[in-house]
Computed example of a mutant assay.
Amino acid sequence: MLAQLSDETLMTLYCEGDLLAFKELYSRHSQGLYRFLAWRSPRREWVDEIAQDSWTGLHHARERYRVEAGFRTYLYQIARNRLIDLLRQQQVLLASELGHTANGEDIFERLADDSAEELPPDALLENKQQLAGLYAAVKALPGEQKEALVLQQFSGMSLEEIAQLTGVSVETTKSRLRYAMRKLRQMMAPAVAQEEQA
């Protein structure tokens, strides 16, 4: 029954005290939130802390919750704000630190491991090399472009959700994604050319 309800309906139920609604929300969004934080956090040890703080923050904000934006945008905004607070507390510049990722390798390793049973060893090695190249290329993107790309590709957010979360227009979001994809293609072109020659 709960699985068929929208996130916003579940959050409304949770605001009214329904703990099963919270459990369903956590089940739906905990992994995506963790991936988002892993890509954004400059320090690996912050990811678990911020994820936990985000869910705690959601719990404390439940009395003030109003359905004005999508639930996922609301949750990710709590996490993003907490990360920015930590960066400020540590007097780390946001623009420079967001160029470093925490667990991005683990995401790609998991993708490679998930397909390990189906691939022969030489194909598995090639797949892991491609994933490592992709990870390095994403890591090298400027912070705003990387954020938009990760939110779209790894968190499944729409252009409108990304725009709302990052506080920019949909057109700016589209531009960031377009530039990110162009840079990724440029960075990945040598590897693709090498594969075609092999």
Rank of each mutant, 00 (worst) to 15 (best):
Q52H: 09
D53V: 00
S54L: 01
S54A: 14
S54E: 01
S54P: 04
W55C: 01
W55I: 01
W55R: 01
W55L: 02
W55M: 03
G57H: 00
H59W: 13
H60E: 00
H60S: 01
R62V: 00
E63F: 11
R64A: 15
Y65P: 01
V67K: 14
E68H: 09
F71M: 05
Y74Q: 01
Q77F: 10
Q77C: 08
Q77I: 04
A79I: 04
A79N: 05
N81Y: 08
N81D: 10
R82E: 04
L83D: 04
L83V: 03
L83C: 03
D85G: 00
L86Q: 15
L86K: 14
R88A: 12
R88L: 12
Q89D: 11
Q89I: 04
Q91K: 11
L93I: 04
A95N: 13
A95W: 13
E97P: 03
E97A: 15
G104I: 14
E105V: 12
F108L: 07
F108C: 07
L111P: 02
L111G: 06
L111D: 05
A112F: 06
D113C: 04
D113V: 07
D114E: 14
S115M: 13
A116W: 07
A116Q: 08
A116M: 06
E117C: 12
E117Y: 11
E118Y: 13
E118R: 11
L119N: 08
L119Y: 06
L119W: 02
P120H: 10
P120G: 05
D122H: 07
A123G: 03
A123R: 14
L124M: 10
L125H: 11
E126W: 03
N127C: 10
N127V: 08
N127R: 15
N127S: 09
Q129F: 07
Q129N: 12
Q129H: 05
Q129T: 11
L131G: 09
